[in-house]
């Protein structure tokens, strides 16, 4: 029963792990890598937004902090990138805990919470822009040194397996959350915080755990980004773009589900690539499309693609039971 719950994750991860054997085009591998990266970032948002119901509009703050943490630790302190990655996750979690402690202690919810996360992302962007150790506005370069011990790989397949491992990890964590008391508490808070408190849930602590976990996970995405591109600047790391990606991916796929962000990311970036082929590399069009997708999803499929799948399954189930009834009645007659 327990292991069975993880079977879909094992199958999906296994299937994705086989892809580099057949896909050799760098373009396709790059597409897969970025898709998994955003699935990871989206999963981070999903834990806080989809499960605990706290909508962040500034998830770039965690993504960027993870990216900057790993880059600066390597460059200024000579920390090994694998160690730096672990530390960067801690930094992401810490930033999450800090923002969470402040905003949840003061009972910020809904729009107020969205605004404050947005503001924190901006503050961090400006700090990264002004500070010396982040390289300021001109950004920061991680020296090229293609060795696995250095968390850099000769070929894209190496990066692909790294991001796949991180994404698979995020799926396992989310599934474990779904099957745990903590996850049930998060859903309860999402649905009705007052009721949750009345039933003995320490909503402050649960939300704090959610944002810490979410922050660390988004930082993992940031770390991968830094290792993959070896360059960061404040506008990239703390920009609105990643905050939007983070929330769009789970909304399209289905908030509060395990596979929603992964599916959402494949759909979003599939559509993105397809339309890019049509429009050329015109600036802006893909983000405009994201905006339109966001509205269309909310209008017609508020439960995301996973919700649609469940609906179709539900209708199928109903039809089957109705048929069974009819058969039984026919048999009785």
């Amino acid at each position: 029963m327990r292991a069975q719950r993880y079977l879909p994750i094992a199958l999906v991860t296994g299937g994705l792990a086989l892809l580099p054997l057949v896909v050799t085009s760098n373009f396709l591998l790059n597409f897969l890598i970025l898709t998994l990266l955003f699935a990871l970032l989206g999963q981070a948002w999903n834990i806080l937004g989809g499960f605990a119901g706290q909508f962040s509009f500034g998830h770039a703050v965690f993504f960027g902090s993870g990216a900057y943490a790993t880059a600066t630790l390597q460059i200024h302190l000579g920390v090994n990138p694998w160690v730096a990655m672990v530390l960067a996750l801690a930094v992401g979690g810490l930033v999450g805990a800090m923002i969470g402690a402040l905003s949840f202690r003061f009972r910020l919810r809904g729009s107020y919470f969205a605004l404050i996360t947005l503001a924190f992302a901006e503050v961090f962007r400006i700090i990264a822009h002004t500070a010396d150790f982040t390289g300021g506005g001109s950004g920061i370069l991680i020296p090229l040194d293609l060795r696995p011990a250095n968390l850099q790989f000769e070929d894209k397949a190496g990066f692909y397996y790294l991001v796949l491992a991180l994404t698979a990890g995020s799926l396992v964590i989310t599934r474990a959350l779904q099957d745990s008391r903590l996850g049930a508490w998060m859903l309860a808070i999402r649905e009705n915080e007052d009721s949750a408190r009345a039933l003995g849930i320490d909503s402050f602590r649960v939300k704090l755990v959610a944002i810490t976990l979410s922050g660390a996970m988004a930082a993992a995405a940031g770390v991968f980004y830094a290792q993959y591109f070896l360059y960061l600047d404040p506008g990239i790391a703390y920009g609105v773009g990643y905050s939007v990606e983070a929330l769009l991916v789970p909304i399209i796929g289905g908030m509060g589900t395990v596979f929603g962000p992964l599916i959402g990311s494949f759909v979003l970036h599939g559509v993105d690539e397809a339309t890019r082929g049509l429009t050329g590399d015109a600036p802006g069009l893909n983000l405009a499309l994201y905006g339109a997708l966001l509205i269309v999803m909310l209008r017609f499929l508020p439960a995301g693609l996973m919700g649609l799948a469940a609906q179709v399954k539900g209708i199928g189930h109903q039809r089957r039971t109705r048929q069974a009834h009819r058969l039984k009645e026919a048999g009785d007659a």
Binding site: S180, R181, A184, D194, L199
Partner: peptide, 27 residues
Amino acid sequence: FQVVQPFGRLSVRENIAVGAHLRHPSR
């Protein structure tokens, strides 16, 4: 609550389980 506040998108079983979790950590 006088104005009932169910966890709307959860099933009845899951709703009650939220309460039960207070004394029973295992799902």
